[in-house]
């Protein structure tokens, strides 16, 4: 396939990007470039027009501090309809931590304040004001084509997320906390949107997930099966193995 291109919509890079999350954009960009896929980044910052989202083949949003999250919530008010539509139309996306919580029904702060979410996915998050869940984490992804791999990342969240009955988790926790520290689930998958607490950032050490997003976006865009060119991921896999071994997880 020649002349392939992808446009990624990067939601609020400055406001929602506390934990090195831009590493995910860097990873997608390089992996596309190495395969001669033209990769364009469209920044969707405060005041963007809802229709700008429609030009995107892939969406990304990272985590943030509480104050930033309030500013973003305000800005997204008039875009909820378009945003929901895009997600229901199976435009792939990666939503990390704060962004993940955002897509749910609500986030209840430690002091009881309830911040309504976009309500796109049937999940809710509550912060019981106990210890934050911090540390390395390893999961088995619940995506059929990826279930042979183990993904690793670093989680750091105060909120505990509960999934609705029909929501599929992104993965099963092998070591670490995941959504709530209890039910061994991590993140959520809805249509082609992947929601996760994995920072690290998640994509550099889990290149299969990066490629899954690229492939899904290309297939959606060009409406045909896409086989991505193989890349040498020795360094990526070594980095992952080091963390998995530390956690006592066999790769």
């Amino acid at each position: 396939m020649i002349d392939r291109n992808l446009t990624i919509g990067w939601l609020y890079p400055e406001l929602m990007g506390t934990y090195g999350d831009r590493g995910n954009i860097i990873t997608l960009r390089r992996r596309c470039k190495w395969r001669n896929i033209d990769f364009r980044t469209k920044v969707l910052d405060i005041g963007f027009e809802p229709k700008e989202m429609l030009e995107c083949d892939l969406l990304f949003m990272g985590g943030a501090q509480d104050r930033q999250q309030k500013i973003v919530a305000e800005d997204l008010k008039d875009k909820v309809g378009t945003f929901s539509q895009i997600i229901r139309d199976e435009i792939p996306g990666l939503y990390i931590c704060g962004a993940y919580q955002f897509l749910g029904k609500y986030y209840k702060e430690a002091d009881g304040t309830v911040i309504p979410g976009l309500g796109i996915i049937d999940i809710y998050t509550e912060n019981p004001n106990t210890d934050r869940m911090i540390g390395d984490i390893a999961i088995i992804p619940r995506i059929d084509t990826l279930s042979d791999f183990i993904f690793v990342g670093f989680e750091n969240h105060g909120g505990r997320t509960t999934l609705g009955k029909n929501v599929k988790p992104f993965g099963n926790v092998l070591s670490g906390f995941g959504n709530n520290g209890n039910d061994k689930t991590e993140g959520a998958i809805y249509k082609n949107s992947i929601c996760t607490y994995l920072h690290g950032p998640v994509l550099p050490k889990n290149p299969e997930l990066a490629d899954y997003l690229i492939k899904t976006a290309l297939e959606k865009k060009y409406k045909k099966t896409v086989n991505l060119e193989h890349l040498d991921d020795t360094l990526e896999k070594t980095a992952r193995t080091v963390i998995a071994q530390r956690l006592g997880v066999k790769v």
């Binding site: 934990y19 590493g23 670093f154 750091n156």
Partner: peptide, 8 residues
């Protein structure tokens, strides 16, 4: 313990 910052 979180080295995510190296991506910034």
């Amino acid at each position: 313990t979180d080295v995510s910052w190296i991506w910034d």
